[in-house]
Simulated assay, not measured.
Amino acid sequence: MMTDERIQILKKVGFWFIIGLICFYLLFPFYWAVNSSLKTEDQLMMMPATFVPRDPDTGAIDISLTNYKQLFNNDTFMRGILNSAIVATSTTVLSLMVGSFSAFALGKLRFKGKKLSLYVILSMTMFPQVTVLTGLYALIRQYNLGPRFSMIFSYMLFALPFTTWVLTSFFKDLPDEIMQSAQVDGATAFQTFRLILLPLTAPALVTTGLLTFIRAWNEYLFALTFTSFDAEARTVPVAIALFSGEVSRQEPAGAKMAAAVLVTLPIVGLVLYFQKKIVKGLTAGSVKG
C-alpha cells in the first residue's frame, strides 16, 4: 500500500500538472500570435509550421520586425488605436461616474421601488447586443450623430447596468455606521458619498472599470456598423479586420497577428499595474467578520 507521503506527492504532481495544462491552453494562442507576427510571408507559408521564426532555406532562427514596422507606418491602424482609446476611456469614465451614483443610491439609500429597479437593471444585461443594433443605427442616422459619440452612447447601454449592479453590492457591504457617523459630523449625503464611501470602493471601481474598458476596447459589431459612413472614426478592431494585402486576394496574416499583439499590450499593462486593486475588488466581501 502507498504511504500517505507518496499520496500527497502524487496529489501535488497532479495538481501542478493540471495547472500547467490550463496555463498552456490559455497562453499558447498569445504565444502563437507573437510567433506569427515575427515571421515574413514566406515563413508563414512554411509547411509544417514552425514554433519559432526560421529561415525557409537554411532553417536557422530568423526573427523579422517587418510586420511591426508596417503597422507603425499605417495611418489607419494608428488612427484606430487613438479612436479606440478615446471611445473606451470615455465609456469607462462615464459608466463609473453614473454607475457609482446609482450604486450608492441603490445600496445605501431607502426609497420605494428600489428592489424593482435592481431587477430592471439586471434584466438589461440579458439582452443580446444585436437585438438593439438596428434601432440604434436608424436613430443615429436620423439625428446625424457622430460615430464616436454613437459608439460611446451604445456601449454605455450595456456597461451601465453591469457597473451599477456590481458596485451596488460593494456599497451594500460598507457598514451603515460610516454614514451615520458622517451625518452626526454634519456631512451631507453627497459629501459622505464623495469623501468617505467612494474612496473605500476604489478596488471595486478599478475592477469594474477595467472590465468595462476591455469590453469597449475590443467591441467590433457596433464599431463596424457606426463607422460604415465615416472611415476616419474606425476603432482598432475594425481597422484590423479591414486590413488588405499589397496585392489582390493577399491575406496579411502576419500584420494582423502583429496588430493583435500591439492591441493586447495596453490591456496586459493595465491588469499588471492594477493587479493588487483587482484582487481586492474580486475578493471584497468574500469573508464576513
Results as ranks from 00 to 15, higher is better:
216 A>W: 13
100 S>T: 01
106 L>T: 09
81 I>H: 08
126 M>P: 09
49 A>K: 15
54 R>T: 13
151 M>F: 09
150 S>T: 13
146 G>C: 07
137 Y>H: 04
267 I>L: 10
96 L>P: 02
33 A>E: 07
287 V>D: 08
133 L>N: 05
70 Q>V: 07
6 R>A: 10
70 Q>C: 05
260 A>M: 12
78 M>R: 15
56 P>D: 04
31 Y>P: 02
30 F>G: 07
179 M>C: 10
31 Y>C: 03
17 F>C: 10
177 E>G: 04
248 S>A: 10
147 P>F: 14
160 L>S: 13
265 L>H: 04
81 I>G: 08
29 P>W: 12
249 R>C: 02
72 F>E: 00
217 W>H: 10
84 S>G: 08
143 Y>E: 12
114 K>R: 14
167 L>H: 05
33 A>Q: 11
2 M>R: 14
28 F>V: 06
22 I>E: 00
235 T>S: 14
86 I>E: 10
250 Q>N: 07
105 A>C: 11
26 L>C: 11
26 L>H: 01
169 S>I: 11
161 P>E: 00
170 F>Q: 05
282 L>T: 04
15 F>N: 00
173 D>N: 14
99 G>Y: 00
253 A>F: 03
6 R>P: 01
10 L>T: 07
265 L>N: 02
272 L>S: 09
112 K>D: 00
20 G>A: 10
10 L>V: 09
166 V>Y: 11
200 L>F: 03
149 F>I: 15
253 A>I: 06
237 P>A: 04
180 Q>H: 08
39 K>I: 09
284 A>K: 07
13 V>K: 03
180 Q>D: 15
58 T>A: 03
240 I>W: 06
76 T>K: 14
188 T>C: 01
57 D>S: 15
85 A>N: 02
265 L>F: 08
49 A>D: 00
267 I>V: 12
180 Q>L: 12
142 Q>G: 04
232 E>P: 08
52 V>L: 10
26 L>T: 06
281 G>Y: 07
137 Y>D: 01
140 I>M: 04
128 P>T: 14
166 V>F: 14
8 Q>M: 10
120 V>L: 13
4 D>Q: 13
87 V>A: 08
106 L>I: 11
218 N>G: 12
237 P>L: 03
219 E>V: 05
164 T>C: 03
144 N>P: 06
99 G>F: 01
56 P>S: 06
132 V>L: 14
145 L>G: 02
198 L>Q: 05
9 I>A: 12
